[in-house]
Computed example of a mutant assay.
Amino acid sequence: MKVRVIVDGVEYDVDVEELPGGKFRVSFEGKTYEVKAEGLGIDFGALAGASQSVQSAPVVSAPAPAPSPQVSAPAPVEGPSVSAGEGLVTAPMPGKVLRVLVREGESVKTGQGLLVLEAMKMENEIPAPRDGVVRKIYVKEGDTVNTGDPLIEIG
C-alpha cells in the first residue's frame, strides 16, 4: 500500500507492506526498513482492502533520510485508540492539532484522515479506525492535546 508520510515538513511517498506479527516493511528512497506497530487500535486487514491510491494511512514512523548508511528502525508511533462501544478516537500521543480534515455529520471511511497532529516536529495524520459518520469533533486547530484526550467521535 502506498502512503504519504511527512517528516519535518517534507513529504515522502512510502510503500508499506504488512508482515505477520504486527510488523511492516516500509520502503522509500531505495531503502527498506522493518518496523513493528503496536497498540494502533485499528484493523489493518480492513485497510488492506482500501483503495491503492490512499493518500493517508496509519502513521508508522519512517526514519528521516540520513547520510549515514547505518540507519536503525524507528520506534513505532502509537495510533489512535477507539473506545469499544462509543467510537471515540483519542490522541495517540501529546501534540498540537494542526488541521481538522472532517466536519461533524460527514461520512468517513476506514483509513481516511480525520486530523493532523503535530508531535515531535512530525505531522501525523490520524486516520478513521472504521467507517462511520463524524458525530462530534472535540478539538479545533491550534489545540494542544495529551495522550488519551478525545479527538473525534465516529458513530
Rank of each mutant, 00 (worst) to 15 (best):
M1W: 04
M1L: 13
K2A: 04
V3S: 01
I6K: 09
I6N: 14
G9C: 10
E11V: 07
Y12K: 05
V14Q: 05
D15F: 10
P20A: 12
G22A: 10
K23D: 06
K23H: 14
G30Y: 11
G30F: 09
T32N: 14
Y33Q: 08
E34M: 13
K36E: 15
G39K: 01
G41I: 00
F44K: 00
G45A: 14
P65K: 14
P67H: 09
S68F: 11
V71W: 11
V71A: 14
P74C: 08
P74H: 10
V77D: 04
E78R: 03
G79L: 02
V82N: 02
G85L: 15
E86A: 14
E86D: 07
E86R: 11
G87N: 04
T90F: 04
P92W: 03
M93K: 02
P94N: 10
G95E: 03
L101I: 06
V102A: 02
E104H: 12
G105P: 06
E106S: 07
E106R: 08
V108G: 02
V108K: 01
K109A: 07
Q112M: 02
Q112R: 05
V116M: 11
L117F: 05
L117M: 09
K121Q: 10
M122V: 09
N124T: 06
E125A: 11
I126Q: 01
I126D: 01
R130V: 01
G132S: 03
K136M: 12
I137C: 08
I137T: 10
V139G: 06
T147K: 15
D149Q: 12
P150L: 06
L151C: 01
I152G: 03
E153A: 06
E153T: 04
E153M: 03
